[in-house]
Design a protein around this nucleic acid. Structure first.
Ligand SMILES: [Mn+2]
Ligand SMILES: [Mn+2]
Ligand SMILES: [Zn+2]
Ligand SMILES: [Zn+2]
Lengths: 146, 146
DNA sequence: TTCCATATTTGAAATCATTTTAACCATGAA
DNA sequence: TTCATGGTTAAAATGATTTCAAATATGGAA
């Protein structure tokens, strides 16, 4: 029976990254908060309690390293800061402009996992939908009823 | 026979924006350089010759106004700055990570012009593909042949 | 174990796109 | 002419991210 921490340690090693304490903790945070699509700041704030010496720069360095090794996908849907996604399977992202939540959307797309388009080589595919989520829509409707 | 400048003037007025000299010139630039997907800086640099007093702030203000009125679409594919697209028809964007070019990609997408997904209201749909364009691929191939 | 080269972490400073602020200017109605 | 409104401008502020240089940790060779 292998622990989750062990699994993450192996994952880092496989990707050629030394499994330092900071890297492990950052990866653990990403793994535990998939739905949050956390920012550098969220990660830093969450870890600063446990690791008082950790620096912003380390979080930036680590996430850049993770990204280069394909461990993590950047999600730039808000336009103001990068959010990080540990989930590797391709999926769409929905940003609610009311509450700011980022929601994973799983829909099949014909361009899906193509590696080429009109002769251009495809390395990344970002799909960002913006609008108002169903929870905020419901709130709005209830308010209007009043 | 209506001039292009007249057409743009009417367009601004229809959208409830006073057709000032600066706004007209910025819109004209966007119209003439659709393929460039210009940045604020590109627009500023190009116009600074003709309008020596123009300021960056005006270009920012104007593009924000255009965006609010739906005259222009922001393209945030590079992650470092906003590019602007005067073309209104929905289409995908391809960023070449070798040469930096942004290429319009016209492909049908089933989610295409839906107004709703899983109960969430859709206002915007951005589709960003990153990789290496066919021209850069060709160059690379020729180099390897040598 | 001890020593050493190398990789990683750290905090401070720099960068750079964008926004904010406050003054100035143009337009048009009263 | 006076006034209100909206647009333009330059300078300053903001904020996410990167750069830099010093300090520290790590793992392998001796
Ligand atoms: Mn996701
Ligand atoms: Mn385009
Ligand atoms: Zn919402
Ligand atoms: Zn290219």
């Amino acid at each position: 029976m292998i622990s989750n921490m062990e699994r993450l340690k192996i994952l880092l090693t496989e990707k050629g990254l030394k499994p330092t304490y900071q890297r492990l903790k950052i990866l653990e945070y990403l793994d535990k908060h998939l739905d949050k699509h956390p920012t550098v700041d969220m990660i830093y704030e969450a870890l600063a309690n446990k690791i008082p010496t950790i620096s912003m720069t380390t979080v930036y360095n680590t996430l850049n390293a993770f990204q280069e090794k394909g461990l993590v996908n950047p999600v730039t849907i808000t336009g103001t800061e990068v959010r990080y996604d540990f989930l590797t399977l391709p999926h769409h992202h929905f940003l609610c402009k009311k509450c700011g939540k980022i929601i994973d959307i799983d829909i099949k797309c014909p361009i899906g996992d193509k590696k080429e388009i009109y002769g251009h080589r495809i390395d990344e595919f970002h799909r960002y939908i913006k609008g108002v989520c169903k929870y905020c829509l419901k709130k709005e409707k209830n308010k209007n009823k009043h």
